[in-house]
């Protein structure tokens, strides 16, 4: 086969590729939404319920953002994660939400890789905590691999949105 398939083709295939196959993909997409939502909500919640200074400190430890942005990102990010989780669960603006989640994961990966490359010894603070750790206690590779997995979920949802049990579908999107 010489035919190349871009995203729209895959999508068309998903929608028109026979009732059984479409149903299967719809449920997997639904499961991916729940999975990504669960991770995002947990990550947001553990940070959100921490003292604000620790949220700030987790962001500050990356030494990437200017001082003025550390605070807003520190407190805003957990809320963003939780709202994205909510949207994914109900399947509202699913594709847009998946794209934003994917971009967020890509930024996390870039941030962790940057800390690693600069020889910092920090915890990613992905699920609360964060800040400096002893050298040899960093888990950069695991953190990146894990986030790549979540990025894959976001890509899947973006391609096959909205999946089963989605508000988008009720709205005829």
């Amino acid at each position: 086969m010489t035919e190349t398939r871009g995203e729209p083709d895959v999508e068309a295939w998903a929608e028109s590729g026979g009732r059984e196959r479409a149903a299967w993909i719809g449920w997997v997409t639904f499961a991916a939404r729940l999975g990504l939502a669960g991770v995002l909500f947990w990550a947001g919640w553990t940070k959100f319920t921490e003292p604000v200074v620790l949220q700030r400190q987790a962001v500050d430890a990356y030494q990437i953002l200017p001082e003025a942005l550390v605070g807003p990102v520190g407190v805003g990010l957990p809320v963003l994660e939780m709202v994205l989780a909510l949207l994914l669960v109900v399947g509202f603006a699913t594709r847009l939400t998946a794209v934003i989640s994917g971009v967020l994961m890509a930024l996390f990966i870039a941030g962790i890789a940057s800390a690693w490359a600069r020889g910092l010894a920090i915890d990613c603070g992905c699920f609360g905590g964060g800040g400096p750790v002893a050298e040899g206690e960093t888990k950069y590779l695991q953190e990146i691999v894990r986030d790549v997995g979540f990025l894959a979920l976001a890509v899947w949802i973006t391609v096959f949105a909205p999946g089963r049990l989605a508000v988008d579908r009720k709205l005829g999107l």
Binding site: G76, V79, L80, V83, F92, L96, L171
Partner: peptide, 13 residues
């Protein structure tokens, strides 16, 4: 729908 979702995110954050 996209606008609604973005508005929700913007307001919450």
């Amino acid at each position: 729908v996209a606008g609604g979702a973005l508005a929700l995110i913007a307001v919450a954050v």
